[in-house]
Nucleic acid binder design. Sequence first.
DNA 1: CAGCATCCTGAATGATACTG
DNA 2: CAGTATCATTCAGGATGCTG
Lengths: 141, 141
Amino acid sequence: MGTGYDEETERWRARFRNGCASRTVLEVLANKWALYVLSALRRSGGPMRFNDLRRLLGDITQKMLTQTLRNLERDGLVSRAVYPTVPPRVEYALTELGLDVGTLTDAVGEWAVVHAPQIIAARTHYDERAAAGPLPLSVGR
Amino acid sequence: MGTGYDEETERWRARFRNGCASRTVLEVLANKWALYVLSALRRSGGPMRFNDLRRLLGDITQKMLTQTLRNLERDGLVSRAVYPTVPPRVEYALTELGLDVGTLTDAVGEWAVVHAPQIIAARTHYDERAAAGPLPLSVGR
DNA sequence: CAGCATCCTGAATGATACTG
DNA sequence: CAGTATCATTCAGGATGCTG
């Protein structure tokens, strides 16, 4: 009301005000290790123990693996089962939702394999021009 | 070599060592304003000026809009055209790559609309249980 | 084995003021 | 109009050491 925009624009803005569903999902997947953990669990096809994941991922710290797993559990993508044995046994697995997100990460992966090289190339190109200094006078640089 | 994993696992790890294409793409899209700027430019269907974007996005600061546009330009998703008039006129538009990424953000959006509510619900559920304190003795909490 | 607690660094985001 | 510059804040990520 009173923003000076037409109805359709107002609707567009309403959809994109913070809380947009896409950003919720992107924030989940953009965590540094989330994609790797999800992928590892997908690949195993069943539950994995903490140190199995840790070894498979190689250079992740315990803290980050714990944190990533907690977040994924909180978001309902991963389940955590504790068996009160000695030594302790904790198994992580994908939930239905976690399995389903695989369809999305696959889509991202397919797009990425094709286009990420173009993004990298664009960056290199941009950085080279930037290093060459500002252009003297240009239209549509 | 010498990590104790079989060939197939080694190949999996190689793909997911830092530099995985999916993460490059996710890092681009996960910036707080990237999705909104891309969406605004898509919606307009043509070039938009700096302050048009600023007004449309509402609560973005100049700094963040500038930074987001520079990043998107660097990544080859947005083009920047400067017209040396008085007052200055700068137009931003989607490149071919920027237009193409729309197919991906659409996919994210479709998945998100269906599943983001489940993620939100899982969080609420998790937080409620956490607030209730640790469970006394549980298997597979 | 599967973690938790602590401390630290750099990057992302933002508020504010100034400028060609 | 379309920025740049500076300062403050927050937080993700990580190194290290300890524990039920």
